[in-house]
């Protein structure tokens, strides 16, 4: 995830030093993604190396003010207008866990699904309780950032729970189908056997 472009976008408003930049980033995104100042400095160094920002001489109290360059501004405009790349999905531990649990006899995959669903539901509830009222959400840029960031977490948690519901109904449908096939299979095999060997009326063939 690119804090690089987010920091550059904030610098487009006005030149800032590292601490100011971090404070502004956290304010505008509601501190949902905490940032340490070391990350900010290393990002600024890379931005400077790539010609997207310039650094002034340190001030008397030792702060280095960074300003965005023309190239940097263009890069921010492009970042705003281009969609985020979704072609290489990040690793998802839960998806991996369920894929493995579904075929493992170490655990009942429905229990895995249910435990996760309850945990995700608790997280969703706790996030929801932090949501400000509609009026408060639009009070200022900071409130707006907090509110949008929270809603993004709400929708992610919701998507995860819906996906778990879907996985569970797939598992149930599959189990039902398997039972039905097994029952059907045993009937047709036994009928077949009866036809072929009239002397054994039970005709049961174990599979």
């Amino acid at each position: 995830m690119s804090i690089r472009m987010a920091l550059l976008a904030i610098l487009c408003d006005s030149p800032k030093h590292g601490y100011e930049l971090r404070a502004e980033f956290e304010a505008r995104t509601g501190s949902v993604w905490p940032l340490n100042v070391g990350q900010v400095y290393s990002t600024l160094q890379r931005l400077e190396r790539d010609g997207l920002v310039t650094a002034d001489e340190p001030t008397a109290d030792g702060h280095v003010i960074h300003s965005v360059t023309q190239v940097g501004r263009l890069a921010v405009t492009e970042w705003f207008t281009e969609p985020i790349d979704r072609t290489s999905p990040p690793r998802d531990e839960l998806a991996m866990k369920l894929s493995l649990a579904a075929v493992s006899d170490m655990v009942d995959v429905r229990e895995v699904v249910q435990r996760q669903r309850a945990a995700s539901m608790r997280a969703l509830r706790d996030i929801t309780r932090l949501k400000p009222s509609d009026d408060e959400s639009f009070a200022d840029a900071e409130a707006m950032g907090w509110s949008l960031a929270l809603e993004s977490l709400v929708f992610q948690a919701e998507a995860e729970i819906r996906w778990l519901d879907h996985v569970e109904s797939r598992l149930v449908a599959q189990a039902t189908r398997r039972r039905a096939t097994r029952a059907e299979g045993s009937v047709s095999v036994s009928e077949d056997a009866r036809r072929r060997s009239p002397r054994s009326p039970s005709g049961r063939v174990s599979r």
Partner: peptide
């Protein structure tokens, strides 16, 4: 789930 999240607790 987004609606259930307004409740204090959810039973399944």
């Amino acid at each position: 789930a987004r609606h259930a999240a307004w409740a204090d607790r959810t039973v399944f």
